[in-house]
Simulated assay, not measured.
Amino acid sequence: MLIRFFLLKIVRNFSGMSKNVIPHSEVPDYEAAINALNNLQSNAHYIQNAGKGQVPDKIAQMIKFLNRAGLTLEDLDKLSVIHVTGTNGKGSTCAYSESILRHHGYKTGFFSSPHCIDVRERIRINGIPIPKPQFAKQFWNIYDKLNAQKENERDMPMYFHFLTLLAFHIFLEEQVDAAILEVGIGGEYDSTNIVRLDP
Score class of each variant (00 low, 15 high):
Val84Ser: 00
Asn141Val: 02
Gly53Pro: 03
Arg120Tyr: 12
Ile3Arg: 13
Lys19Ser: 00
Ala60Tyr: 11
Val11Lys: 10
Ile63Leu: 01
Arg154Asp: 04
Gly16Arg: 02
Ile100Val: 08
Gly184Glu: 08
Ile117Val: 08
Leu166Val: 10
Ile47Trp: 13
Ser92Val: 01
Ile128Gln: 15
Gln54Glu: 02
Ile170Gln: 10
Glu151Met: 01
Leu79Phe: 00
Leu2Trp: 11
Ala36Thr: 07
Phe111Gln: 15
Gly127Ile: 01
Gln149Arg: 08
Ser97Ala: 13
Ile59Asn: 02
Tyr189Ile: 13
Gln134Thr: 11
His45Lys: 07
Gly127His: 02
Ile170Glu: 11
Leu181Asp: 09
Asn43Gln: 14
Val81Ile: 10
Leu181Arg: 02
Ile47Val: 11
Lys107Phe: 09
Ser113Lys: 14
Ser99Leu: 14
Tyr159His: 15
Arg4Tyr: 09
Ala44Ser: 07
His161Asn: 15
Ala33Leu: 07
Lys137Trp: 10
Pro157Arg: 15
Ile128Ser: 14
Ile130Thr: 12
Pro23Leu: 01
Ser18Pro: 00
Ala179Gln: 05
Ile63Phe: 00
Val81Pro: 12
Trp140Met: 02
Glu174Thr: 14
Asp75Tyr: 00
Pro114Cys: 11
Tyr106Arg: 10
Val84His: 03
Leu146Thr: 07
Leu71Thr: 07
Ile47Cys: 10
Asp57Val: 05
Asn35Pro: 00
Gly51Phe: 04
Asn141Trp: 08
Asn193Arg: 03
Glu98Ile: 09
Asp118Val: 15
Ala167Met: 07
Ser25Glu: 15
Phe111Gly: 13
Met62Gly: 10
Leu8Tyr: 04
Ile34Asp: 14
Ile185Arg: 07
Arg154Pro: 01
Asn13Gly: 05
Leu2His: 13
Asp177Met: 04
Phe111Cys: 14
Asn43His: 11
Gln138Met: 15
His103Ile: 04
Phe65Cys: 01
